[in-house]
């Protein structure tokens, strides 16, 4: 009796999940399917899920052929990687302080961190543009990196604070009693324990950088330095929209991050737990 209801429950869960996933991944299927079509195949009716004239050449064209997408891909990697590093570098100490000390201004700081989320980056483009220009950073990766990091930082701090709060204070105190300096104990004890959390926060920031269009559109002038999102949006702006090649480009823009995510998926859930509950 009980087993039976459990079985029904389980199969119901699977059915709902599968239907949900089919709906959720519908655009993803369309993207994949289109990316293997010919131009004629794209505009045919009825559309085919698995194209008759299946071709892989779209990917080669996009990657190293006409479009040279490996360049924007590398640019995106540089930008997103630096955003991840910079956010962690700034965010980890701040999160450590928030999780370990009660100090005057702590609440104000936490509140300000939330408030920054209320200004859409779009809104700040004009003043940011002026700042970037006055710093002589127009047309540099640096401009995009610092811009994006500033907007990734609040969430990074939020995530990390939660993570670090979960690591017992006694550990580093014990280490310090043993004669370790504060920094040494941080480096030896805390960082390794917080590893998954730091990775999660870093990847969150990485994705923010990977996602960026607004800052690179505004600050970067040369096609050579364009990240993948900008290259994609230029792709759309041309007269003929080559959907098959565009979708191949889209797959390329999603794949690396998707692979990274599947690795940290477990930690991601844990990381957010502690962050959400304590934050």
């Amino acid at each position: 009796m009980k087993n039976k209801s459990k079985l029904i429950n389980l199969s119901l869960t699977h059915i709902i999940m599968i239907i949900f996933l089919m709906m959720l991944l519908f655009p993803t299927f369309v993207m994949l399917s289109t990316s293997f079509k010919t131009f004629e195949g794209v505009l045919g009716w009825p559309p085919q899920w698995i194209p008759d004239d299946f071709q892989f050449v779209n990917y080669i064209n996009v990657w190293i052929g006409d479009y040279q997408f490996y360049k924007p891909f590398l640019n995106s990697m540089i930008i997103a990687g630096s955003v991840g590093l910079l956010s962690l570098l700034l965010g980890t100490p701040a999160a450590y302080a928030l999780s370990r000390y009660k100090f005057a201004g702590r609440k104000l700081f936490l509140f300000s961190v939330l408030a920054t989320q209320m200004f859409s980056p779009v809104v700040l483009l004009v003043p940011l543009y002026k700042i970037v220009r006055s710093m002589g950073l127009i047309n540099t990766f640096t401009s995009v990196i610092i811009g994006r990091s500033a907007f990734a930082l609040p969430m990074v701090i939020w995530l990390l604070t939660g993570y670090l709060s979960n690591i017992p204070k006694d550990l580093e105190e014990a280490a310090m009693v043993d004669g370790c300096s504060l920094f040494k104990s941080l480096y030896k004890i805390i960082l390794p324990l917080a590893g998954p959390g730091i990775a999660t926060a870093g990847i969150y920031a990485f994705i923010m950088g990977w996602n960026d269009l607004m800052f690179s559109l505004t600050f970067i002038n040369e096609a050579e330095m364009a990240p993948i999102t900008l290259a994609m949006s230029d792709f759309v702006g041309k007269n003929v929209v080559y959907w098959h090649e565009m979708m191949a480009a889209a797959v390329i823009s999603i794949l690396p991050v998707a692979i990274m995510f599947s690795y940290i998926q477990k930690y991601l859930v844990k990381g957010l737990t502690s962050g959400a509950v304590k934050g």
């Binding site: 996933l21 959720l24 991944l25 655009p27 993803t28 369309v30 993207m31 994705i207 990977w210 996602n211 269009l213 993948i228 999102t229 994609m232 949006s233 759309v236 565009m246 979708m247 889209a250 823009s253 999603i254 991050v257 998707a258 995510f261 599947s262 998926q265 991601l268 859930v269």
Partner: peptide
Amino acid sequence: RTLILIPWVTPQVVSAII
């Protein structure tokens, strides 16, 4: 759990194009 994350890793602009 992994499959569900795919939309999240799709850059917004790319998602809108798709």
